[in-house]
Simulated scan of single mutants.
Amino acid sequence: MPPDSPSTRRLQGYALLFSGMALVGTYVALSKPLTGAFPVFLLAWLRFAIAAAAMLPWLRRRPGEAPLDGRLLGTIFVQSLFGNFLFSILMLTGVSMTSAAAAGVILAMLPAAVALLSWLVLRERLGPRTWTAVALAVGGVVVLTLGRSSGGGAHSVVGNLLVLGCVFCEAVYVILGKRLTASLSAKRISALLNLWGLALMTPLGLWQAAGFDFGAVGARVWSLLLFYALAASMFSTWLWLSGLRHVPANHSGVFTIAMPLAASAVAATFLGESLGPAHAVAFACAAGGILLIAVPARAASASTRNGPDI
């Protein structure tokens, strides 16, 4: 197969998409030990601060990019409010209260959440397959929650709901992102979003930093924090957007299945978590919903020529 052929580029795109989503699942799972070492607001603030320093070159305006007018700045602010600030608080708090594997599976409900918000906010029409995917997503979260609560883990019920809340924050982030990519480069959008996240988190981060003993944090935890900051703000975004250059948009959603796969593998291998029947059922629901949305039937694909049907 020639190295520059369309098939080769598409395979490379698939590899980048899978790697990006696997990295998301990995850092979500590894954020659990970080929440045991740092308070949530301080942890999120340190993440944004480290990433801001690393992404300084990404702030440079490229030739042909639109100037940052009030409309763009407002969109970036709202997107960062939901996708960075609230997402980080809900995700880190939720992961500290539930298992890393459960959090990864719940995050795989993102395609269904995006479809549901598109219907509620953008008034886009949803087909039967998408409604089925939404139902599977709800069922997966219910199975996880009931499985944990019946085992005496009522504390994790709140954690699961918080992680579900961060899924909808990320869905708002995705929907608003459609307005930005036509005007700004992906790198500059990522850097600006991270700066807004840093600004929003700074008061809360400084408040918790004032009484925190930084000397008690070991080198291993600091290394894990560096990985988390760069993976969450830089590498996973770059991998995902680079993959999208070579893959049709309607194929990309299926690769979010790598998120719960990686989160579950890290949780079982490195964090010592046990995976029970509830995880398996919820994972099956997530996988089914992703496939229904990302791999539509031929008839459904043909109907999109006449109107939106996601």
Rank of each mutant, 00 (worst) to 15 (best):
S242C: 08
G243M: 06
G243W: 06
L244Q: 14
L244S: 11
L244R: 14
R245G: 07
R245M: 08
R245L: 11
H246Q: 13
H246I: 05
V247F: 10
P248W: 00
A249C: 12
A249K: 12
N250F: 13
H251G: 11
H251L: 08
H251N: 14
S252K: 00
S252D: 07
T256H: 07
T256N: 12
T256I: 15
T256A: 04
T256D: 06
I257Q: 13
I257K: 09
A258D: 06
A258C: 05
M259T: 10
M259W: 04
P260L: 09
P260V: 10
P260N: 08
L261S: 08
L261F: 06
A262H: 10
A262P: 02
A262T: 09
A262I: 07
A263S: 11
A263W: 10
S264P: 11
S264R: 13
S264A: 15
S264D: 11
A265E: 04
A265C: 08
V266W: 01
V266K: 06
V266P: 01
A267L: 07
A267D: 03
A267E: 00
A267Q: 04
A267F: 01
A267H: 00
A268K: 04
A268C: 07
F270V: 04
F270P: 05
L271W: 00
L271F: 01
G272E: 01
G272W: 00
E273N: 05
S274G: 09
L275D: 00
L275T: 00
G276Q: 01
G276V: 01
P277H: 01
A278P: 00
A278C: 01
A278F: 13
H279C: 04
V281I: 07
V281S: 03
V281T: 05
A282C: 12
A284I: 09
C285F: 07
C285M: 12
A286T: 09
A286D: 05
A286K: 05
A287R: 14
G288Y: 02
I290S: 06
I290T: 10
I290Y: 09
L291E: 05
L291S: 10
L291Q: 08
L292W: 01
I293V: 12
I293E: 09
I293L: 14
A294D: 10
A294K: 07
A294E: 12
V295K: 15
V295C: 13
P296L: 00
A297V: 14
A297F: 08
A297Q: 14
R298K: 15
R298A: 14
